[in-house]
Amino acid sequence: MAKTMDELTVGQRAEVGAIKAPKQLKRRLMDMGFTKGVDVEVVKMAPMGDPMEVALRGYNLCLRKAEARVIELR
């Protein structure tokens, strides 16, 4: 099992691998820049531990853990 993005803790960086999600969500995430090989860093967790804020391609994005779970890392 590859590690997924929701397992990262604040301050950790990783490289995006495959996205295992239904078509619509996968396209959405990829449109936002989560393509293979891109660097992501977890910036912050929301007060209740979900959603999370990540930095990629020079901007910040927040998404829920459920969405982060479909993004595999390598």
Binding site: L25, R28, L29, M32, P51, E53, Y59, N60, L61, C62, L63, R64, A66, E67
Partner: peptide
């Protein structure tokens, strides 16, 4: 239903 929350900050 599952739904996404993706928002640029």
């Amino acid at each position: 239903e599952k739904n996404a929350f993706i928002l640029e900050l």
